[in-house]
């Protein structure tokens, strides 16, 4: 299974999002073509309601702990409760690479 599919599956099963986008942004970075190193996650879930951002990010970091340990180089996280998502409707762009490698 691709890393993208693994991330999608784990987050779907454990966070039960109302909306989930997992975007492979590796091509924007200094890695070989076809890499699965840099991802952006846009996720909307009821369980984020009333929780500070750091708590939401910790929930996701926990679900993806194994992947974050050495498989994924970068993970941009944009987390929304359903009413916040209705207000904004889109996540900000990720930064361009600065070529620092690991």
């Amino acid at each position: 299974m691709s890393m993208q599919a693994v991330i999608e599956e784990k987050l779907s099963q454990q966070i039960h999002p109302a909306h989930l986008q997992v975007i492979n942004e590796s091509d924007n970075h200094n890695v070989p073509p076809g890499s699965e190193s840099h991802f952006k996650v846009v996720i909307v879930a009821d369980s984020f309601d009333g929780k500070p951002l750091i708590a939401r990010h910790r929930m996701i970091n926990e679900v993806l702990a194994e992947e974050l340990q050495n498989k994924i180089h970068a993970l941009a996280l944009h987390t929304y409760a359903p009413d916040e998502w209705q207000e904004t409707g889109q996540a900000p762009d990720s930064p361009p690479c600065h070529g620092g490698g690991k």
Partner: peptide, 25 residues
């Protein structure tokens, strides 16, 4: 602080978070 990624930003000894949280704040 059991936080797997960089950067990490601390204010008054407390972890604020990484890039996405800092920017949103």
């Amino acid at each position: 602080q059991n936080w797997p990624t960089f950067p990490q930003i601390y204010i008054n000894g407390e972890l604020v978070g990484g890039c996405d949280i800092t920017l949103e704040m």
